[in-house]
Amino acid sequence: MEFETLLLEVEGPRATLRFNRPEKKNAMNPRMHLDMNLALDQIEAEPDVKVLVITGTGNSFSAGMDLEECFLQPYEDPQLFYRTNLVALKWFQRLKAFPIVTIAQVNGYAFGGGFEVTGLCDLAIAAENVKFGLSEINFGIFPAGGATWAVTHNMPRKQALHYILTGDTLTGREAEQYGLVNRAVPAEDLEAEVDKLVGKIINKNPVTLRLAKEVYEGTTMMDLPRAIDYDQAKLWELARLTSDEWINVALKQFEKRSYQPGLATYKRPEAADDAQRSA
């Protein structure tokens, strides 16, 4: 499927999704919101994909919402205004809970919604010189649609409030310092750094990756006894869905000293991959 505002490539276990409105610095308009939902549908239906990388074309990741198309133009029609922006909230929520690993490859300007997508992805790597910002305060509102949630769940309180209240920008290097991204690297190394991270993830069991995300999200607001009960239930789920691969394959290989878990990943049998795809 081709999209008006996105470019999607699926290569084996990796999907790459690019915001593609470079003439608008990849600002998110209503068409892009619709396209994102369709693209996520397509990626989720791909049985082999383990990682989704999100990036932008041109010199921007995303400048955030298209202020004219999302706000000014539909404003006089309350129902249209509501529908236009509700679509965005749906795909933001889907991205946060997406069943495969998501990586933001932040190649350029990331403001508002672009800042939010960075915060919603599981992992993020940025070029050192990119600019992040929450400029909403500069046109009279606060970061909404989940943007405030994204900054408060990725950055310390004082830094989060500073950028929310001032509209100041921060660099990729500062974003790394404050926890918004995992790493900031020279722009020329960005793709290679993301490729390296993808390479580490695609060798893992896809069911384990999904359940590891679910356990993390599910236990963040639990006390320790409830968290242990929850993760034990998920371990039983993992065992059932993978035929105890962690015991029957991974630890059997460790028993033969064919790999060291602290340094490498066990070799997964193709038969297990085929069985999981057909499940």
Rank of each mutant, 00 (worst) to 15 (best):
A126W: 12
W91K: 02
V87G: 06
L86I: 00
F115A: 06
G108A: 08
R83M: 01
D77S: 11
F111M: 10
Q93V: 01
L89T: 04
G114I: 05
A127M: 08
A127Q: 09
Q73W: 12
E128A: 13
A97R: 09
Q105R: 10
K96C: 02
A88C: 01
E116A: 15
Q73C: 06
E128P: 08
R83N: 09
A104F: 04
W91Y: 11
N129V: 07
Y75M: 13
Y109N: 10
G119P: 06
I125M: 09
W91G: 05
T102W: 11
I100M: 11
Q105N: 09
Y82T: 07
A88W: 02
E76M: 09
N129I: 08
N129E: 15
L95A: 06
A124G: 06
R94Q: 11
V106C: 10
L120F: 14
E128H: 07
T84Y: 01
D122S: 08
K96P: 00
T118K: 05
T118L: 04
G119D: 13
V87F: 02
Y109H: 08
L120M: 14
G114Q: 14
T102K: 06
V101Y: 06
L95I: 05
F111C: 01
W91S: 04
I103Q: 09
G119W: 02
G112V: 05
D77E: 13
G114L: 11
N107F: 00
I100D: 05
A126M: 10
A110Y: 04
L95S: 04
T102H: 12
E128C: 07
A124K: 03
C121D: 04
K90R: 11
E116S: 15
F81R: 05
I100A: 03
P99G: 10
F92D: 01
F111D: 12
L89A: 05
G112S: 15
G108I: 05
N129P: 00
L89D: 06
G114S: 13
F111S: 08
Y75Q: 13
L86D: 00
K90E: 10
I100V: 09
T84C: 06
F111A: 08
A124N: 01
P74G: 04
V87N: 05
Q79G: 07
V87P: 00
E76F: 07
Q93A: 08
A104C: 12
R94C: 01
F115T: 07
L89N: 10
V117P: 05
D122I: 03
E116C: 15
E116F: 03
F81Y: 15
P78A: 15
Q105D: 12
L80G: 00
E76A: 12
D77Y: 00
A110N: 11
C121E: 14
V101A: 13
E128W: 09
I100T: 04
F92Y: 06
I100Y: 10
Q93H: 07
G112K: 01
Y109R: 13
N85Q: 09
V101W: 02
L86Y: 11
K96M: 07
T102N: 13
L123M: 15
V87I: 08
A110T: 11
L86N: 03
